[in-house]
């Protein structure tokens, strides 16, 4: 039955690219679609569709409600529910966003937004550098103690970052003199990302044929050449998969920045500021709603554009917490 299913429906084609990890991640995976859900739905179809729609609505309405709220005036927000806003589209306004982003005011989020960008980019690039180097050595270079070290790095994935925070803060402040600076968060995010990054990239590297490496060695290429010329281009999907993970993780992080940066406007990211506003100005919904969406827009766009890589990373066994 399912083998006769026309594969040309746009959504099914699209879905295949989204849901299927590359063969290298899950070797035994079949490319055909299953008949399991088909069987389940054939019998309970109306109920199934109904339930699916209920779940989808429950999952969407909260976000939608706050999104609508962010376009309403301060007075409207506090006197009527967002669901009444559709009656009067002329009352919609961008004022909340203007206020939230206006430079110079104490409520301004623009400087925190820039801090988030400045924090995130090095905190994604740096672990990619270091982890791909280490993963290459673990995968393809024999050296004493290699396997034991790799197991150790792998095992470090289970260490919650909370156990390192207080001593690290002490290092940064008292030994390195970083204090509340970007360097503290760049280094911390890098350190916390390394076990997972090394593990994921190593797995991708092991899947590459060893003949490739051997042929290059015979031609006289050193490890440095092989790493740059042969491996890095082949690794792009793996680097993208981990990169988008780390991007979302760092952009959305609250704890690490809160501990190392506090609320310092010079360096603190937008998550810290929005969380702070939620505590101190919990009923200023005009500000909170716009602020939340300003903080959200970049990761959501990145996520939608690169969903394929993200899912691939998920299925390869990476979820950090």
């Amino acid at each position: 039955m399912s083998t006769l299913q026309p594969a040309a429906l746009p959504e099914s084609v699209n879905d295949k690219t989204i849901a299927e990890p590359p063969e290298s991640v899950r070797p035994g995976r079949r490319r055909r679609k299953s008949a399991a859900g088909d069987a389940a739905r054939a019998i309970t179809s109306p109920w199934a569709s109904g339930l699916a729609i209920v779940i989808a609505v429950l999952w969407t309405v909260p976000t939608f409600g706050l999104l609508v709220t962010s376009f309403r005036s301060q007075r409207d927000i506090n006197t009527s529910g967002w669901w009444t806003a559709f009656g009067d589209p002329s009352a919609w306004t961008l004022e909340n966003y203007r206020q939230a982003l206006a430079p110079g005011t104490s409520a301004s989020l623009s400087q925190y937004f820039i801090n988030t960008i400045v924090i995130t980019i090095p905190a994604v690039v740096l672990p990619l550098f270091l982890a791909s180097l280490a993963a290459y050595a673990f995968a393809w270079m024999p050296f004493p103690g290699r396997d034991a070290l790799f197991v150790a790095v792998f095992a470090l994935q289970i260490v919650p970052l909370q156990v390192a925070l207080i001593p690290l803060l002490d290092f940064y402040v008292n030994r390195l003199g970083f204090g509340a600076s970007y360097w503290s968060v760049w280094l911390s995010h890098t350190i916390f990302a390394l076990p997972l990054a090394t593990f994921l990239i190593h797995n991708f590297m092991r899947e590459l044929p060893s003949e490739l490496m051997e042929a290059a060695r015979v031609d006289g290429a050193g490890h440095v050449t092989i790493f740059f010329r042969i491996l890095l281009p082949l690794l792009t999907p793996a680097l993208a998969a981990f990169g988008i993970f780390q991007f979302l993780w760092v952009w959305n992080d609250l704890l690490v920045s809160l501990v190392f940066l506090g609320g310092t406007p010079d360096v603190a990211p937008i998550t810290v500021r929005v969380a702070e506003l939620s505590g101190s100005r919990g009923s200023a919904w005009y500000l909170l709603s716009a602020g939340a969406f300003i903080a959200m827009i970049v990761p959501v766009v990145v996520f939608l554009l690169l969903q394929r890589y993200f899912v691939r990373g998920l299925l390869a066994g990476g979820l950090k917490g």
Partner: peptide, 13 residues
Amino acid sequence: AISMVGAGIIWKF
């Protein structure tokens, strides 16, 4: 894709 901070605000509302 939404931060837990963002999710917290969404649900608080």
